[in-house]
C-alpha cells in the first residue's frame, strides 16, 4: 500500500508536508497537540531525528503517535547516531509499525548538540543510507547480503541543500541521490530564492525534476532574532540581507514572516519542477494552517 504522501505526489497535486520536533521529554501530549494543529493541513509530517544533535524523543516513536492520530508520519534517519545494524533494525521496526515515509539524512555533527562528547557514528553516509533502504525494499536484502524474510513497504526520501557549497556540485549531488534510490526530495529552507532558482535551472537541465518530486523547504520567520540566528549560526543556510531588512522594517514581525512565507510558496508554485513545499515551523506549528490557507493550498486532497 502506498503512503498518502506518495499518492498525493502521484496525483500531481501540489504537495504540502510539515515538520514536528519531538519533545525533550516523554510528554506524548506535546506531540499530540502539535499533530492536531497540523492534521488536515499537511499531507505528511516529518518527525525530526535528534535535530542539531540535541537529544529528543525518538523519531519513530513520535511517528507512531501521529500515525495513530491519522496524520501520516515521515520519520527521519540520520547517519550520526546509528550504524548499519541499528539503522536497518529501525527501518524494519518502523515499517512494522506502519510507517512508510523515511527521510535519509546525514545529520548535524554532534559538536552542535547537547552531547558534544558523543562518538559520531557515520558508518554509512547519506547516499549509502538511501541505497541501503532501496536494497531492503527492492531486493529484500540487507546490506550485508542476508535476505529479508518478507518484503517491506517504504517510501524513501532524501534532502538537498542548494545553499551549501560547492554550488556547482549541488545538482550532481541530487543526481547521486536519485541514482541511489530517492523517491522524493525535501530541500533546505529557502530564503535566497535567486540561488534556489539557479539550482532548479540546473535540475531541469539534467532532467532530474522528471525523475524525482522536489519539495521546496520553507521556514516561516517568527522574529528578527530568528532570522539573524539562522543567518549566522545554522550551517548550510543562507538568509539574504533583504529578508533581514524587510523584517526589520516591518511593524508586525510575525505577520511579515507569514507574508514572506506565503509569497515564497506562491512563487514556488510557478517554478517548473517544484512538486510541493515542506514547511518547517518547528516551535511555531500553530502558524502552519494560516500559511497553508493563505497560500491557497486548501483543502488538502483526500485520496483513497
Amino acid at each position: 500500500m502506498k503512503s498518502n504522501l506518495q499518492k498525493v505526489l502521484e496525483s500531481g497535486a501540489f504537495v504540502v508536508t510539515g515538520e514536528l520536533g519531538p519533545p525533550k521529554s516523554a510528554e506524548r501530549e506535546k506531540i499530540e497537540h502539535h499533530a492536531k494543529i497540523l492534521k488536515g493541513y499537511v499531507d505528511a509530517v516529518n518527525l525530526t531525528d535528534n535535530q542539531t544533535a540535541i537529544v529528543r524523543a525518538s523519531s519513530i516513536a513520535c511517528g507512531k503517535i501521529v500515525l495513530d492520530m491519522g496524520l501520516e508520519p515521515t520519520i527521519q534517519i540520520t547517519c550520526r547516531d546509528r550504524n548499519r545494524i541499528g539503522i536497518q533494525s529501525d527501518v524494519l521496526g518502523a515499517a512494522a509499525l506502519g510507517i512508510k515515509n523515511m527521510l535519509c539524512i546525514q545529520g548535524d555533527h554532534a559538536s552542535f548538540g547537547n552531547e558534544p562528547q558523543a562518538k559520531n557514528v557515520n558508518d554509512l553516509d547519506s547516499i549509502n543510507l538511501i541505497a541501503t533502504l532501496k536494497k531492503m525494499r527492492d531486493e529484500q536484502t540487507l546490506l550485508g547480503g542476508d535476505k529479508l524474510e518478507a518484503p517491506i513497504d517504504i517510501f524513501i526520501g532524501a534532502v538537498a541543500n542548494p545553499f551549501a557549497d560547492p554550488f556547482e556540485y549541488r545538482v550532481y549531488r541530487l543526481a547521486q541521490k536519485v541514482a541511489a534510490g530517492a523517491d522524493f526530495i525535501q530541500t533546505q529552507a529557502i530564503f535566497d530564492m535567486e540561488r534556489f532558482e539557479r539550482w532548479m535551472e540546473k535540475v531541469r537541465e539534467l532532467g532530474l525534476h522528471k525523475k524525482v518530486p522536489i519539495l521546496a523547504g520553507i521556514i516561516p520567520l517568527k522574529s528578527l532574532g530568528a532570522a539573524r540566528y539562522m543567518k549566522n549560526n545554522v550551517s548550510g543556510m543562507i538568509v539574504p540581507d533583504h529578508i533581514i531588512d524587510r523584517l526589520k522594517a516591518a511593524p508586525d514581525k510575525k505577520e511579515e514572516g507569514v507574508k514572506i512565507a506565503v509569497e515564497m510558496i506562491q512563487h514556488l508554485k510557478t517554478v517548473e519542477g517544484v512538486a510541493g513545499v515542506h514547511i518547517m515551523a518547528v516551535a511555531w506549528e500553530e502558524i502552519v494552517p494560516e500559511i497553508v490557507e493563505r497560500a491557497g493550498l486548501l483543502p488538502r486532497p483526500q485520496l483513497a
Binding site: Q106, N120, S126, N128, F163, P166, Y172, S235, G236
Partner: peptide, 18 residues
Amino acid sequence: SKSMLNGPCGGSQNGKCE
C-alpha cells in the same frame, strides 16, 4: 568530520566544514 564517501554534506559552506 563525518567520514563521508560520497561528497560533501549540506553543512559545507565557503569551503569550510560545518
